[in-house]
Write a protein that binds this DNA or RNA. Structure first.
Lengths: 345, 345
DNA sequence: CTGAAAGCGCTTACAG
DNA sequence: CTGAAAGCGCTTACAG
């Protein structure tokens, strides 16, 4: 039986290589202030001992931990999991690791944020929950960058990355109008959720410019499962809408199911437009027209902002809007004059 | 403008409270060996300074880090993201934090595992990638528990948690047979993926016991997007199968799309059974019959095993099989004698 | 119960 | 280029 073996430390390597621990440390650092010969000896010793620097001890000295926390809610929508996946992968690319700080119940991201601080994270990305001013302030004072995903909050040192919600909603509204919808409804999350609010207002403002208004609204969580009952409700009433803009694709898919259960034809009786462009939107059974919110650019903007901040950038705060793109599929009617093109900016 | 403020340390608290750092440390520890009065003073001082122990420094001394790494691939299937979500949440419940170690391309989980080790994780859950014996051995020698999710690998100190794949596949096979399917195909991942292999064999063995065999097989990744072309291929041939068992629900949904594109009626012309029971399987548009692989018990078993190991349990290795359950929906024909019941064990 | 001291594994000025 | 020393923020025996 093999006895539990302690991890090799810098001292072990120094001893084997016949040098000081300083030399070992330098050999694993930027490689400066070490002779090639010393470095070679050190690396060889490290190899035989299977030595790898202890990231935790290293960060105690004042260097960065390489840890970035993500405060996130339930991974319900496919969009969320794709986002987490892309972020984790992207961070590895810049030598950082993602620490998950899940929060539930829509409330206090504060707990997750404070836990992250205990681990001396280099930065925190907040994608869910609400943040108290006290906690935000604390991050600012400690110089830990805070990046909000999907919402804008004013505050020194707080950067925000999110979709051009109003623009995307306007595109959806215009498409619905131009394809003949007059009674347009909105289904969203409600309760003051940031992106939801912006999308609803984007729709409303565009409609109002033409003298129309949202004819009905429903609020829910953001699941496909929630979309179904809300769709049923909205579509069973007396003054049925003939167009529905949904806060996201997951809800839209639920609405489509509901429309089918009611025997409505899409897009003849009802047009549906979603938001996100999750993979399922392209599935044959849904063919959902939607406002694409691309994940790669979003994650890239987050990581870039994060690196700028860690490099010392000290602008008061930055808001990056990710452009959206209308993807026209089968749940909306054809434009009278549209020919051939399926996607438009 | 507020100057960046250093985090309060144990010394700051000790000074303010007028005690030694030892006293502070004890007050934040198990609370033993401190008088109530001292403790109260310390906690008050900590409160005013906003002090919280540095988790990293704490773990340097030899205690645990509270970090658990998850080596995971792309979060493609909804099952994966639900799993990550449940695991992260469950770990918070026992005071641990999930560090994401994403790996790509199906290969070397080794990189992710070694990175995890650099952060002195208390344990690692491996849900993707292949692991070299050297790395597994290293974990064993260092006494860091390794828990495999979804696969069995022999090795000292390696525990495994996974579905009762053979049993689940047998249930699927029996249902297909009892509802009249004679030409049964399998669509899976191929390339020796562990669970895929077990499910395929479970199907084959059950069929063989009745003198039948799998009439066709297709290999793919595990996406819905992959299921479609494979379904097309399998269903366009001369000797079309009338029953397909898919390695997971995502693939099955793609197959359903393909069947529809070909004008096949489900379940009359073709029966489809999946595995996992993702939320989408219950959607009106799919109504997929599937072998449910429940996530909560799986995650619970993982966390429990992890805690047992950290508590010093030293059995050589443990394999936990999570029972599956057949959920009968619309993609399979009705049993001749079945009445009323939609779910059977 | 309490504090001074040593030490966890590293890095970083500081001399040489 | 190189090493001895101090120190990062904590905990843990060890005396008192």
């Amino acid at each position: 039986m093999v006895l539990p073996m302690k991890r090799a430390t810098i001292k072990d390597v120094a001893a084997l290589a016949g040098v000081s621990s300083s030399a070992v440390s330098r050999s694993f650092g930027d490689g400066t202030h070490v002779s090639k010969a010393t470095r070679r000896k050190v690396l060889a010793a490290a190899e035989t001992l299977g030595y790898r620097p202890n990231a935790l001890a290293r960060s105690l000295v004042g260097a960065r931990t390489g840890l970035v926390a993500l405060v996130v809610g339930r991974l319900r929508s496919p969009f969320d999991s794709l986002f987490v996946d892309a972020l984790a992968e992207s961070l590895i690319g810049v030598g950082k690791h993602l620490l998950l700080s899940p929060v539930r119940g829509d409330q206090r991201a504060d707990d997750g944020l404070m836990r992250a601080l205990d681990y001396q994270v280099d930065a925190v990305v907040v994608a869910a929950g609400t943040m108290s001013p006290e906690v935000a302030d604390r991050f600012a004072r400690m110089g830990v960058p805070l990046i909000l995903s999907g919402r804008v909050v004013d505050g020194a040192g707080i950067d925000c990355v999110l979709a051009d919600n109003a623009g995307g909603a306007a595109k959806a509204a215009e498409l619905l109008l131009r394809t003949g919808c007059k009674r347009i409804a909105y289904i969203g999350r409600g309760h003051g959720a940031f992106s939801d609010d912006e999308r609803r207002r984007g729709l409303r403002d565009t409609l109002r410019r033409l003298g129309l208004d949202i004819v009905a609204e429903a609020r829910a969580a953001v699941d496909r499962e929630d979309g179904h009952p809300l769709g049923m409700e909205l579509l069973s009433g007396p003054d049925r809408p003939n167009g529905i803009f949904c806060m996201n694709d997951a809800l839209a898919v639920g609405v489509i199911e509901a429309a089918r259960d009611l025997g409505l034809r899409l897009p003849e009786d009802l047009a549906v437009v979603g938001f996100d462009d999750i993979p399922l939107a392209a599935a044959g059974s849904y063919q959902l027209t939607t406002v694409a919110y691309p994940i790669q650019p979003t994650v890239a903007a987050i990581v870039e902002t994060l690196e700028d901040r860690l490099a010392g950038a000290d602008w008061p705060s930055r808001v990056i809007r990710i452009p959206t793109r209308l993807v026209v599929r089968g749940t909306t009617r054809r434009l009278e004059r549209a020919v051939g093109t399926r996607t438009e900016g």
